[in-house]
Design a binder for these strands. Structure first.
Lengths: 220, 220
DNA sequence: TAATATTTTTAGATTTGTCTAAATTTTATT
DNA sequence: AATAAAATTTAGACAAATCTAAAAATATTA
């Protein structure tokens, strides 16, 4: 089954939302996609006739297995292109999203398989997000946000959930990047902020908001 | 000025045709694009309002300077992507055209400039076609089809004008690729066929049809 | 040059994806 | 439970890109 660019964008957004809420509702999808609820309803009918959506009027909706596979195909393409843009073309990681949004809709199995091989079959994109394989299998990593890491433990940064330019700016300031090793020194109950030691740098304090968005895992 | 994918495809085809005939007419563009004459007329009106086309009803049409620059932008993107697909992803050169047809419509100046640098600013694509620079300047090469090379001269293959799978098959058979050195041994007046010597291979005879489609230049 | 053929354009329809405004259904609140 | 509010869907419109069929303009030829 093949999909239009617009269909793929809806599929991707539904997948994203249903990861968090199970069932998705019309308004939240409209908000996510910056479109109108009426447009969402129109597309839902189309996706239902394509048999990739469980959808009953007024009841909410979610992708079925075929729909999830379709979503993972798009996610795979998106993340492989992001990896390419950062690793090969030397883009900053916060500049690649919108270009990858276009590239992800190029439909050629062989292109993506060759790109995957050319890049060395990476498991995670430049933001630390897992890259599904061609069967839709997602690599797992035992990661936790910094707030949930106990004091005195040392961990390696594996992903960042807020990928805004503002967040990137903060992380640069703290010398935090993917792969950076961090030791948790102290937790402040008052505001949830953390004192941390970034390897090769002096100790510093990060807010709870930052700590909740930076994910890390224990040494492999 | 930016263009839709459809507009870009028309612009590219008009450019291609007007290189050969100067003025382009509706039916030949419809044939080239495998669409209907009525659709062409519709698009011509649009391109005229965008001020990139000289067009008078029933009189034929051609791109003006702005239109040519737009066409060269698309050609540049197409050929850079083809180069990427062959050199980096190891596609066969006859498999890349349709994928490059999609990639060429991704619009990001920075993407293309970075891709160009990543590829080492190539001057010619895998078919030997020149890659315009970002200003629309086309590298020139003193090339001639094999039929026009005098007997006893040795030349280097620089491009192939017919890029069909069938042609590729023939060239593989003759051990001819871009960069191959060929000596013209004899011309047969009867049917225009040529006896040639491909470097490191024994002499063979190619038809006039092949000779007219293989371009070559004298040693740099 | 008058009749015929070809080319090109117009008129009107279709599909996809979107929108606004109104109607309907569901949910929340008094 | 009745009413108000919120969420969702429907109805109808629009723009882009295409198409078919018919009309208009141009070119060919007898």
């Amino acid at each position: 089954m093949s999909f239009t660019t617009s269909e793929e964008n809806y599929i991707k957004s539904i997948y994203h939302l249903q990861q968090e809420t199970g069932l998705v509702n019309t308004n939240s999808l409209a908000a996510e996609m910056r479109t109108r609820a009426a447009s969402v309803t129109d597309m839902l009918k189309k996706l239902k006739t394509k048999k990739i959506l469980q959808y009953e009027k007024y009841k909410g909706f979610k992708l079925n297995e075929a729909g999830k596979k379709a979503a993972l195909d798009v996610v795979r393409k998106h993340r492989l292109w992001e990896f390419f843009l950062v690793e090969k073309l030397k883009f900053d990681w916060d500049k690649v999203h919108s270009i990858a949004e276009d590239l992800e809709h190029i439909s050629s199995e062989e292109l993506i398989q060759r790109l995957d091989n050319f890049l060395g079959n990476p498991s995670f994109d430049p933001h630390g997000d897992p890259i599904p394989d061609r069967h839709g299998k997602i690599p797992v990593i035992n990661q936790q946000c910094l707030s949930n890491i106990p004091v005195k433990k040392t961990v390696t940064v594996s992903s960042v959930s807020n990928q805004s330019a503002q967040m990137l700016e903060m992380l640069k300031h703290y010398n935090i990047a993917l792969g950076t090793q961090i030791t948790i020194l102290k937790k402040f109950e008052f505001d949830g902020s953390l004192e941390i030691k970034v390897l090769k740098h002096s100790a510093c304090i990060i807010s709870e908001q930052v700590a909740k968005n930076v994910f890390a895992h224990y040494a492999q």
